[in-house]
Design a protein around this nucleic acid. Structure first.
Ligand SMILES: [Mn+2]
Ligand SMILES: [Mn+2]
Ligand SMILES: [Zn+2]
Ligand SMILES: [Zn+2]
Lengths: 151, 151
DNA sequence: CAACTTATTGCAATTAAGTCTCAAAAGCAG
DNA sequence: CTGCTTTTGAGACTTAATTGCAATAAGTTG
């Protein structure tokens, strides 16, 4: 099935004279289907299951292309590698469980609004931002079953 | 003059059997005096003015040691390098002017409080967090003279 | 202060994420 | 299908950071 992302990417290709190649389709597909935040190596591993000839260099080239086009977002959570997710959902920030590496998404309109105010007070407008909260489980139980996110 | 940081580092050395060496004193001094957020290469450059024989490897080793001891904080603003600042001041977050690279510090107790609430609602407690807002100047003038931060 | 033990240093080699070069392969307009 | 152009895979390269190692310097003891 052809997703929103596929259509957007096709449009982009036509617009910029880029080619809709096999590797690009597969990499975009891997990213569209991911419900976690894979890094380039993990994207390559998943893409390789579909076409083992895809090179890691192509993964790096493609995620850069997609990121520059606004189709992908990259994050730098603790470890050195950049991690990716498609930019087709509403903006959110992340809680990272430092004991398990699980990533939990959240959104706070209040925080978003406060950030706007801070930027404006300094004479700026926000281009982008990142908020990452590194957490560990509360000892005293009170756990919600929220961490569906792998790694 | 001997700063708070120096004393804390001396205590740490005694505690862990570490040695208070020339290079360590100089690197800590450079960091204590910095009012910006220098990266390892810049710290090395400044340390070299005092003792040209200091190796970049020693800078990397020392900032890691200081960071692990909680004396230094490292940040990963856009560019690949880690940037450092001493952890002796009150917690704050950063606005980064993407046009100039200037870093502006701010603190919002409201945002801090909201983060606590979010973490707790998910059954976690915050270990650390980072909030970085990438901004550009508002076209319509309204500028405050706040950016005292170099680089 | 001199001798001694052990941590630390400078240096060069190494690692690891990501980028680049280039000849071969593949898109795609005609 | 042809021909032009972009993209690819493979491997070389770049850059921040880490590590191995022999030489050096801290700190300790007498
Ligand atoms: Mn996410
Ligand atoms: Mn700061
Ligand atoms: Zn946000
Ligand atoms: Zn904060």
């Amino acid at each position: 099935m052809k997703s929103k992302l596929d259509e957007e990417f096709e449009r982009l290709c036509r617009e910029k004279g880029l080619r809709l190649t096999g590797p690009r389709r597969i990499i975009l597909d891997v990213l569209a289907k991911a419900s976690d935040h894979p890094d380039a190596i993990e994207v390559h591993r998943r893409a390789s299951l579909i076409d083992p000839s895809i090179a890691i260099a192509t993964v790096y080239r493609t995620v850069r292309l997609l990121e520059d086009s606004g189709i992908l977002e990259s994050h730098a959570f603790g470890d050195g590698r950049a991690r990716y997710e498609t930019a087709d959902r509403e903006h959110h920030d992340h809680l990272i469980n430092i004991e398990t590496g699980d990533v939990i998404e959240f959104r706070s309109d209040e925080i978003e609004r406060l950030q706007e105010g801070i930027a404006r007070a300094h004479g700026f407008e926000i281009v982008s931002h990142r908020l990452e909260i590194f957490v560990k489980p509360l000892k005293g139980g009170k756990r919600k079953k929220t961490s569906r996110d792998r790694r």
